[in-house]
């Protein structure tokens, strides 16, 4: 067991790979419980007046599609069910293709019409300036949609000038964009903001939810699975729960084995004093 201390890291990598791939190939079918952060968004959208305007910012790039695409799809399904008017946009150049494809796909499934039920505003550089500017006037940031048509020519944009006229702002991101949306769109202009964030970034959103700056948030693939459970439409989130569960169990098992190895080494009196450096244990 003492040998665990100097374990080759590639063994752990192989273990992680198998613990993800095998459940994807042979699903187990775990179901997940819904947390309050996710339930709050669902409830908010349910209580929004029908055909409310919703701004959805796809602030992510291809790297994080595994976690964020299922969330975006679940949000869109629910919003279209509620007949909301969805305005898609992105603050990252790499988000254009992703947002466009997902909006088209979900709108087609729900039978929504471009310009009447949804539209795509496109990409705008410099996120914070855009967020602040849209608090004054959306058309000043996006005079036209992605395809060059003036915003005021769309029936769904009638009466939509700024956050004031929107029922909800949704941000999907793997960076600090959610905090910025909360600080600028909510704190400054009073918009209701909901978030879908990668699991790594979701941990920092708890204070924002507690303080009411965020309606709620979806954290990682589990957040997507929870939302899919609420709207009763299984998707990639629920499908990914098996892989996530098994890989978590594998990591916990490795942590336990590592500690057994550590205890064994210590018991034999071979453990050296801490060097303050973190390099040695995994080869």
């Amino acid at each position: 067991m003492a040998g665990m201390k100097g374990l080759d890291r590639t063994i752990i990598y192989w273990g992680v790979a198998f613990s993800i791939v095998i459940p994807l190939l042979w699903p187990i079918g775990f179901s997940t419980e819904v947390t309050s952060q996710v339930r709050d968004i669902h409830r908010f959208i349910e209580q929004m007046p029908e055909s409310s305007a919703v701004l959805m910012s796809f602030d992510y790039e291809p790297a994080t599609i595994a976690e964020l695409d299922p969330m975006a799809a679940a949000f869109l399904k629910h919003l279209f069910q509620r007949r909301a008017r969805v305005m898609g946009m992105t603050l990252l150049p790499g988000g254009v293709g992703l947002a466009e494809n997902l909006l088209r796909q979900e709108a087609a499934i729900a039978g929504m019409e471009y310009g009447r039920n949804w539209l795509f505003l496109g990409y705008i550089p410099d996120g914070t300036a855009a967020m602040l500017r849209m608090g004054e006037d959306v058309a000043m940031v996006f005079p036209t949609d992605q395809y060059g048509t003036a915003l005021d020519s769309f029936p769904m944009m009638r009466g939509v000038k700024s956050y004031r006229n929107m029922g909800l702002v949704i941000c999907l991101s793997s960076t600090a964009m959610p905090q910025l949306w909360a600080q600028y769109a909510h704190d400054r202009y009073g918009a209701a903001v909901a978030v879908g964030a990668t699991a790594v970034e979701a941990v920092r959103l708890y204070p924002y939810h507690d303080s009411g700056q965020l309606v709620g948030f979806l954290g990682g693939l589990k957040g997507a699975a929870e939302y899919e459970t609420l709207i009763q439409t299984p998707g990639d989130g629920i499908r990914g729960m098996d892989a996530q569960t098994i890989s978590h169990l594998f990591i916990v098992m490795m942590v336990v084995l590592g500690n057994i190895g550590y205890a064994a080494t210590k018991w034999r009196g071979r453990a050296g004093a801490s060097t303050g450096r973190n390099h040695a244990p995994v080869a």
């Binding site: 890291r9 992680v16 994080t64 790594v200 890989s247 990591i251 590592g258």
Partner: peptide, 23 residues
Amino acid sequence: QATMFSLLGFFIATAAYRSFRAR
């Protein structure tokens, strides 16, 4: 890019294995 992001899963495993010790 998705591959780059997925590397996090592997790195988190080794980081957790290395740092979660009952010292």
